[in-house]
């Protein structure tokens, strides 16, 4: 979004114009939803994370100084929310189900999602299950760093800034994520043409 337009929208929102915020949501939601979907791996949680990021922006709009663009602020917030969400999910799975650690697939995972889009259906099936299971083995930070670098093609320097980490730490997370994925998906690689 154009910087001038963004500033004008921010002014309108601060003056209490809700339609200004709706315009901001409309401009950023497609990419924010996609990012959240990649980070957490499912649509419902992605929508919750994106919504929470927008609500936080709205609540703090008076304090938003504009040091970074709204997009950067939203992606950074969504990324941090995703890390919290992934940590909670991992802990919950470990405590209540022991399913992830036993590496047993939930039979429901193989039932096609009737609400799935064509893109999702394309990746449905065993390969997708394997990849998602491998991704679930990563720590929250490893997953987020890998997703931001591999899928979002965000430079490590920017990832480090977004997560408030040293660049060296981010490099280590990326390397460990890649090592785990290589280990878990080794046979898929050998089977692929």
């Amino acid at each position: 979004m154009d910087t001038c337009l963004e500033k004008a929208l921010l002014t309108r929102i601060r003056e209490g114009d809700d339609s200004g915020f709706e315009a901001l949501v409309a401009a950023h939601s497609p990419r924010l939803l996609s990012l959240a979907w990649r980070l957490v791996g499912n649509r419902e949680d992605a929508e919750e994370i994106a919504q929470e990021a927008f609500l936080r922006l709205h609540r703090g709009i008076d304090d938003f100084r504009g040091d970074s663009s709204v997009a950067t602020w939203l992606y950074r917030t969504a990324t941090r929310l995703a890390i919290d969400h992934l940590r909670r999910r991992k802990l919950r799975d470990q405590i209540f189900f022991f399913r992830r650690s036993n590496e047993e697939a939930d039979p429901l995972d193989f039932v096609p999602d009737p609400a799935a889009s064509p893109g999702e259906r394309f990746f449905a099936g065993e390969v997708r299950q394997r990849i998602e299971r491998a991704m679930q083995r990563l720590s929250a930070r490893q997953r987020v760093v890998f997703t931001l670098r591999h899928h979002e093609e965000m430079p490590l320097r920017e990832i480090a800034a977004a997560l408030g980490l040293e660049e060296g730490t981010v490099k280590a997370h990326l390397h460990r994520a890649v090592r785990i994925l290589r280990q878990d998906l080794k046979d898929l690689r050998e089977e692929s043409p």
């Binding site: 915020f21 709706e22 949501v25 939601s29 497609p30 939803l33 889009s117 890649v178 692929s192």
Partner: peptide, 26 residues
């Protein structure tokens, strides 16, 4: 070879889904 297996396709949220999400945020 491993990294190529991992999909890079943009997750699809249809315009209707995005619109419905925007309305919910509103």
């Amino acid at each position: 070879a491993t990294l190529e297996i991992l999909p890079k396709v943009e997750p699809e949220f249809s315009p209707e889904e995005v619109r419905s999400f925007n309305e919910r945020v509103g």
